[in-house]
Design a protein around this nucleic acid. Sequence first.
DNA 1: TCCTGATCATAA
DNA 2: TTATGATCAGGA
Length: 186
Amino acid sequence: MKRNKGWVGLLLEHVLGASAGSRPEPDFPELGIELKTLPISSQGKILETTFVSVAPLKGLTGINWQNSWVKKKLKRVLWVPIISDKNIPLAQRQVASAFIWSPTVAEEQLLAMDWQELTDMIVLGEVENIQGKHGQVLQLRPKAANSQAKTQAFNCDGKPFMTLPRGFYLKTYFTQMLLNKHLRIS
DNA sequence: TCCTGATCATAA
DNA sequence: TTATGATCAGGA
């Protein structure tokens, strides 16, 4: 797994017939549903943050929460929890009960607030001051092959410069809430 | 111990 | 290079 991190996700997409590829679209375009695996422990505890999408560092003119990539991706999600304790061999890991989810008003509020705060900082040219600890449910973290990768962004003077690509992640606190809610009603 | 920042594989 | 899929691992 150290060298095949996204393998489980790719397997699920293949088995369930999702449109493969690296397009910035939902896994099931006709249904508008995004497929995401959710690594949990055997106790039902979320083990990792969940990658949502890359963060646009340029071309932000006119975008808001309503038309953001994050909102579109999270409109409908098929969560597939996988028991992924690190002492369990990959071949013996089990898929827990999957569930379809859409944000409630309260949940979307949380997401929108964090998204707005992070996006504001990007627009203001403070990308490099953003750390993973920002936000309650969303965080902005490096999303690259390594720390040497670069993408274009704009600083506070509106001038372009190269910086580390970032991506939006859902914090474990948020995905844990979703999982707990699902467990209660099932 | 856990979270943040870093890293790995692959396609186009 | 940018996008997809994520997990790893060291420092706080």
